[in-house]
Design a protein around this nucleic acid. Structure first.
Lengths: 155, 155
DNA sequence: TATTGTTATACTCTATAACTATA
DNA sequence: TATAGTTATAGAGTATAACAATA
């Protein structure tokens, strides 16, 4: 891998070109943050030698709780058969392990190994916490931002 | 395609579990919006029978201006050879066309066909404009949100 | 019968490396 | 020599369909 595989869609071609309403400008700012976060995620995954799907799977796992594979499929919004492949590759690297679930022998549970939990921790340290920019706002401004975003999201 | 291939990383497993600072909560709200926008993009692409990379390429093109292929590669943050394949497939569907560039005959320009421009328009209509939630804020709140986001982004 | 996970198949995206044609 | 684009190759993600084991 040469380039860190950054944004799949950095520029959404600015529909704010002339309209320039505050909503459009706010949206543009949001998309910028969004793109940056995505680049951060992909670059970090690449540094840890994880493909995006593998990194997403790790992040979606609980360090303590085993998870049924079909639950992972739901969270990753992909088919069961994809999860089989992703878990195959993670298991080959010793990051996760499969367990049979005695209560329902159709189900297989996936659990993080200590190695996998450590790698997941490194991923989250890079990608799961608030970006530095947020810390520069005052506490009151952070609350204000939070409340505004929650109202936007509450559809 | 059955499922719309939604979030690659919907849940970043909340590192805000206990800390719960306003910054973390704002960040969580931001990530929620981020994930939703990504789902919107992927679902729309899927509806239009475009793979994510193809949709990203279309969105990154200008309806009027031809673009050199290496410029697309830069914007998509991928290798030239990938662009070859993506443009191959878009061209096979009559959405784009290649043109030789007489000033530098090494370069090939890609231009949207009318069909491609229409499809790009439909993509952007779904994905490029501010989400409904934003419109529910007052104009003053929209400006407030814009300013806060810009400060967060200005690293 | 329905569900869980696997396998088989096919297509796309991605990177690397080698090649061409131009510069 | 260096750059733009292509081709060849390989690994990974994705969907569909068929299948075995289990419920």
């Amino acid at each position: 891998m040469t380039k860190p595989v950054t944004a799949t869609r950095r520029q959404l071609s600015d529909p704010t070109e002339e309209g320039k309403s505050a909503a459009d400008e706010a949206w543009a700012a949001l998309r910028e943050l969004l793109a940056r976060q995505r680049r951060r995620f992909l670059a970090t995954a690449s540094e840890l030698d994880l493909h995006p799907g593998q990194a997403a799977a790790l992040v979606n796992m609980d360090p303590a709780e085993p998870r049924p594979m079909h639950e992972l499929a739901t969270q990753l919004a992909c088919d069961n058969s994809n999860v089989t492949g992703i878990i195959d590759r993670l298991e080959a690297r010793g990051l996760v392990a499969r367990q049979t679930y005695e209560q329902d022998r159709r189900v297989r549970h996936v659990v993080l190994t200590p190695l996998g939990a450590r790698l997941r921790g490194r991923l989250l340290a890079q990608v799961g916490s608030a970006p530095a920019g947020l810390e520069r706002l005052s506490a009151a401004e952070q609350r204000q931002l939070r409340d505004l975003l929650r109202r936007v999201a509450s559809s």
